[in-house]
């Protein structure tokens, strides 16, 4: 409540939990095996499974990039779809209006998103907590209505459809490998950011902003940097979406779309790097399955989300870590 002093977030425990879970070498080896298995996917997976994976890989980048703000920066943004959508629109708009080479547009997309994130962050980060969340949401809707209204430029509510990727990428296997490669590199880069001195300082701004400030840390500057970096990778994820689906439409920018990576992070666990990635896989596979079998997938999603929020604050990954029997003794 209002009178309550702000408790240190659950995240405070992250420093204690850091050494739990699998040994880093085991984890790295396991991840390498998973990536290799994914790379060999076309040998044993059907067309529809590959397409599904293409979508999930992009969403995993989207979720991990959002979690840079959410889990590491303690910044609840309900507007990351703005940058996801900009990434997708950069490719689609270039294809429709400017006809520059695809690779140029693909490379420029994350930078366009990062630039937008810089200006959005400059304004939104002045507000605190809830106001920040609602302000990012407003930006999300601003871009949404602009994309929907300016139909002569953006194709309006229908969006832009067309053969916007080079023929080489349109070959299913190539498209899959391309998306997998970009996603793996992007996730590695994001992971590097989180363990860099910048990433540690970002956590400091989340856990003790006043203290970080008094120690001479520029809290606003670090948060803005995190916002721009997150925007960059959200934009990249959006560009991957354009490669996967060859279209861009206003709903990509919507606030409900912004909720997706937040949910993925919460489901997987926002206080570990892989949580959002795992969350993206679980969320999307479950969604596909439920959409096929029941009309009430939103209801089930809502209930699952409630259970996780109320009973597993560290998400499924956190649950798994706590559940490792041989680690229990070491836990305080």
């Amino acid at each position: 409540m209002a009178a309550q002093p702000a408790l240190p977030p659950v995240a405070d425990q992250i420093s204690r939990k850091r050494d739990q879970g699998l040994h880093p070498a085991v984890l790295a080896a396991g991840l390498a095996v998973i990536v290799l298995m994914l790379a060999a996917g076309p040998d044993y997976l059907g067309q529809s499974a590959l397409l599904e994976l293409e979508l999930i890989l992009g969403l995993a980048v989207f979720a991990a990039a959002t979690n840079l703000l959410l889990g590491y920066g303690g910044l609840v943004s309900f507007g990351q779809a703005t940058f996801y959508g900009i990434g997708a629109y950069a490719i689609a708009l270039n294809w429709m209006h400017w006809k520059l080479p695809f690779w140029l547009a693909f490379s420029a997309a994350p930078f366009a998103a990062a630039l937008a994130a810089f200006f959005v962050g400059l304004i939104a980060l002045r507000a605190r907590k809830l106001y920040f969340a609602l302000l990012t949401l407003a930006f999300s809707q601003l871009f949404y209505v602009v994309a929907e209204q300016q139909y002569h430029f953006t194709g309006g509510a229908n969006g832009i459809f067309g053969k916007m990727i080079p023929p080489a990428l349109a070959v299913p296997q190539n498209g899959y490998w391309f998306i997998l490669g970009v996603a793996v590199v992007a996730l590695l880069a994001l992971w590097k950011i989180t363990v860099s001195p910048f990433g540690l300082l970002l956590r400091a701004t989340r856990e003790r902003p006043e203290r970080a400030e008094s120690l001479g840390l520029n809290v606003f500057g670090h948060q803005l940097m995190a916002f721009v970096l997150s925007g960059f990778f959200c934009g990249l994820a959006g560009a991957l979406y354009a490669v996967y689906n060859q279209n861009a439409y206003p709903e990509l920018l919507d606030w409900v779309k912004s909720g997706d990576p937040v949910m993925m992070s919460v489901i997987g666990g926002m206080y570990s790097f892989l949580g959002p990635v795992v969350g993206a896989f679980i969320y999307e596979i479950a969604r596909q399955f439920l959409v096929g079998t029941t009309r009430d997938w939103q209801l089930i999603l809502g209930v699952v989300l409630l259970v996780i929020i109320l009973f597993m604050p560290d998400g499924l990954i956190g649950q798994f870590k706590h559940g490792l029997p041989w680690r229990k003794g070491g836990r305080k």
Binding site: V76, A133, M263, L299, G302, L310
Partner: peptide
């Protein structure tokens, strides 16, 4: 926020 968001999902459905 997430609890009321879940509520939003459930009630919409």
């Amino acid at each position: 926020l997430l609890v009321t968001y879940s509520l939003f999902l459930i009630l919409s459905d």
